[in-house]
């Protein structure tokens, strides 16, 4: 039997909320699939659209950007800029025909280990039926 497709996901987690939330998931010994490689950034506001495109170009099957809830940003308002920027990128990717499930954004606070776990579980579940992402993957 062929091995089940395991999507590769890159997650940009802000240091103060989402990465801390992911740490809490660990401390609480929650379990989620190992498909995600986290990259800790200082703030969701620092996630450039280039990071997202680059991840897809390098073969990511899914990309997650996660930051603090509005009003809770360690840097006061970085997540608001992220929200605007990511909304535009998400809609553009959708427009060119990339499956919308592949690019997600979430708010995960330092206290939301459970939410982080659920987001990763759901993300992996949603990506599995889509198969590998080849639309933007480097085809050289």
């Amino acid at each position: 039997m062929a091995e089940e497709f395991e999507p590769k996901i890159v997650a940009f987690l802000c240091k103060w909320c989402s990465s801390a939330g992911s740490d809490l998931a660990g401390v609480s010994r929650m379990e989620y699939p190992p498909n995600v490689v986290p990259i800790q950034v200082m703030c969701s506001g620092s996630v450039s659209p280039l990071y997202v495109l680059s991840a897809f170009n390098k073969g990511a099957d899914g990309v997650l950007v996660s930051g603090c809830h509005p009003g809770d940003c360690h840097y006061i308002k970085g997540n608001f800029y992220a929200r605007r920027r990511i909304a535009l990128v998400k809609r553009l990717l959708d427009f060119i025909g990339l499956e919308p499930q592949r690019f997600q954004m979430s708010w995960v606070s330092a206290a939301e280990g459970t939410k982080y776990t659920q987001i990763i579980k759901d993300f992996v579940q949603e990506l599995k039926p889509l198969g590998p992402q080849t639309k933007l993957r480097r085809d050289l």
């Binding site: 280039l50 680059s54 170009n57 060119i96 639309k135 933007l136 480097r138």
Partner: peptide
């Protein structure tokens, strides 16, 4: 090297998406 210079589909996509986003 955010993208390759070669005019292949994937790199063209990245180029045009970056161009469009930078014009948002």
């Amino acid at each position: 090297k955010w993208l390759e210079k070669s005019p292949v589909k994937s790199e063209n996509f990245v180029y045009h998406l970056v161009r469009a986003i930078h014009l948002a």
